[in-house]
């Protein structure tokens, strides 16, 4: 464990909590892409199946349980409890265009052709594009609530910190996982446009509105 990976995990946890609190407190999931939340829940479920097979550390197991439960709770809030506030008309990204290629690629490019490894690879590839429905929805509505931009900032930051963690681990431990690194790069690059808007607008107190 190094400071960048810990900061990344904390940033990820902050993002997940911000979203859950935003929906719970405002009793509304306006502006939130339910499709992205379903993809994130799938990412955690397919990646953390080893929760029951191997024990790495209390930290590792408890974070996995928190991520899985918070993401499933968020999906429940969006599609059931606060379904009336779900903006389905703008959450129209065709997720099959993500899941099918990612599913195929995880069978073709992986470290080991075993069920657990293929599911892990699927989860890594899926996570790198899971935010697309959310970014697509913001581009369609032309704006995002400020709290939603903070959620996206920490979510994008987390994998960026993981990239630094992988540089650190390669340099000090000789460890590197090309699949995770390439997917992490794609994932972080997808946020660049948002990061620019976040820094130039939201951090200056303006609302995030895209030129519609």
């Amino acid at each position: 464990m190094n400071i960048f990976r810990l900061a990344g995990d904390v940033s990820h946890l902050v993002a997940i909590i911000i979203l859950l609190l935003k929906i719970w407190k405002t009793r509304s999931c306006a502006g939130i892409s339910g499709k992205s939340q379903i993809l994130f829940a799938s990412v955690f479920v397919t990646r953390y199946l080893d929760l029951f097979t191997i024990f790495i550390s209390l930290y590792n197991s408890s974070m996995k349980i928190i991520y899985i439960s918070c993401s499933i709770a968020t999906v429940y809030l969006v599609y059931f409890k606060f379904k009336a506030t779900y903006d389905g008309n703008h959450d129209t990204f065709r997720v099959e265009f993500l899941v099918v290629p990612v599913g195929g690629l995880s069978f073709l490019v992986n470290h080991d052709f075993s069920p657990m490894e293929i599911l892990w690879t699927f989860s890594i590839y899926l996570e790198s594009v899971a935010i697309l429905p959310q970014l697509f929805m913001i581009s369609k509505t032309g704006e995002a609530e400020t709290i939603t931009t903070h959620y996206l900032f920490f979510l994008g930051l987390y994998r960026g910190l993981y990239l630094i963690n992988w540089i650190w681990r390669y340099y000090f431990e000789g460890f590197f996982d090309l699949i995770a690194i390439v997917a992490g790069l794609v994932q972080t690059v997808l946020y660049c446009d948002f990061f620019y808007l976040y820094v130039t607008k939201v951090l200056k107190g303006k609302k995030l509105s895209l030129p519609a």
Partner: peptide
Amino acid sequence: DTDTVPKDEL
């Protein structure tokens, strides 16, 4: 290749 890297990351 079965060099599955250790999965100690989240």
